[in-house]
Each structure stands twice: as C-alpha cells, then as structure tokens.
Amino acid sequence: MAKTDIRRFAGFRATTWLCLLVLYAPLVIVAIYSFNASTSITRWGGFSLKWYVDVFSGPEAPKFRAAAINSFAIAIGAATCATIIATAAAVAMNRAGRFRGKLASLALINLPLMVPEIVTAVASLIFFITIGFKTGLLTIFVAHLVFCIPFAYLPIAARMKSVPDMFEQAAMDLYATPWEAFRLVLLPLMVPGILSGFLLAFIISLDDFLITNFVKGAGIETLPTAIFGSVKQGIKPNIMAISTLLLGVSVVLVTLSWLIGRAGQNKK
C-alpha cells in the first residue's frame, strides 16, 4: 500500500485556486471593461482605447494630470525620506549594540502599523489644525512619510540582519572610520534591501486614500482622492481606465521589488 502523502489534504488545492480567483477576478474584469468601446459601462461594445485617450485628453484630463503629479511627487518625496530614516533606524537596531530606549524605538517604528488608519487620519487632522499648519501638499507629505517608515524599515532591517558585519569589521581593521565602513562597505551590500524598502514605501504612499482625504485640504487632490470623488457619482469608464493604469503601476513596482529581493537572496 502506498503511504498517504502527509502534506496533502483534499480540497486544499481547489481552495487555493478559489482564493486566487477571488483576489484577481474583480481586477481583471475592471481591466477588461476599461477597453470597452461602449459608453454603457456594462454592455460590451468591442475593443477600444478611447477611455485611455479620455483620461489623457478628455474634459477631466487636467484634474487627473494634477492629481497624478501630486501623487507621484508625494510618493517619491515620502518614500525617499522614509528610506533614509528607516536605514538609519535599521543600523541602530542591528549594528549599534544596546542603548537606552531601543525597545521603545522598535515599538515606535511599528506604531503606524498598529493604530487604525481612520484614527491616524483623525489625529493628524486635529494636530495640523491645532498647531495652525495649513492643510495641503506639505501635510500630505508629512503624514505619508510617517506611515511609510515601517514599510521601508521591514525589508531594510531584514536585509541588514542577513549581512554579516565581518566586512565592516575588516574595513575598520584597515583604519576605515565608522562612517566610511558604512558608506563604502555596508551600504553597497544593502542595495537590494534599500531598493525594496523604497519601492514598498512608494506603493504604500501612492495607494493611500483615507489619511490623505483627511489632511489634504480643499482643492488639492491625489489620484486616489480624485478617483474616490468621481466614483461617488457613479463608476464611469474613464475611472476604470485610470484604475487600470494605477493597477499596472503597482504590479510593475511590486514585481520589481520582488525580483530585486530574489536577486539579492541568490547572491548571498
């Protein structure tokens, strides 16, 4: 008698396929309908790129363009700053021995992940209004920077843990200063982790709706808040086109981050 496979359970494979179907079906359907030639959003009228043309040159194009510029500018700025801050924090956690407040610091880094988003949104709004900080691009940037830090930190700290410190030790035996050891030895070894961290922070910033919606101030939109405003009046085909574009950006960036992470692992 063949021994039964201890790893196999009836129905688990089917459930996995169901899980993938549930996760992907809505996205694929919206992507398909974004190429619909018909003006009625649910009747299929043949393949067309007209809604993509509409996004770039239609009546709402200036609004979307401004929102896209805001979104990308904030994402690049917030992700860059968050990556630098997270790298410094990772060095402190992994390479600086014990110091006072180390555990509290780790808790603080993870705080944005623990506080519910709606609470962060409300608290940020109250804070900015109370200190008289005019809501606008700068408040969105600061709020994004805060919640980007833990997402940048996770891959950077994981990578730093897996890089042994003997190379830096060797550099310092050869009279490198700590700063030189960091800049010339550790930093190049950290590139995959830092890139992953930056990309994840970038995506998280690009995706945020709720916090942005609270701290954005009147008249300033990012892509998610602009899309939300449109959807409130009903789903239009151009919204499906712009959603598909944004979806594509996320998928490309995550894939990049994954490939970089894998390349880093293989090298090790």
């Binding site: 630098i84 801050i85 410094a88 924090a89 060095v91 402190a92 956690m93 992994n94 390479r95 600086a96 021995g97 014990r98 110091f99 006072r100 407040g101 180390k102 610091s105 603080l108 880094i109 705080l111 944005p112 506080v115 609470v119 962060t120 608290a123 940020s124 109250i126 804070f127 600061v142 709020a143 920077l145 805060v146 830090i149 843990k161 410190d165 830096e168 030790q169 310092m172 700590p178 050891a181 960091f182």
Partner: peptide, 28 residues
C-alpha cells in the same frame, strides 16, 4: 546583534522619534 557602530544608536534613531513621535504619537 552587532555593535560596530556602538554609541550611535540614539543619534540614528532620532529621526524616527522626531517624525513618528511628533506627527503620530503626539497627534493621538
């Protein structure tokens, strides 16, 4: 872990305390 940058911990952690401390902990 390693302690080759020993003594720099608090300094390296300062930005985290400034940003998350001032713009999240304080607002809450």
């Amino acid at each position: 872990g390693s302690d080759i940058y020993r003594g720099n911990g608090p300094r390296l952690m300062l930005p985290v305390w400034v940003f998350i401390g001032i713009f999240l902990l304080l607002p809450v």
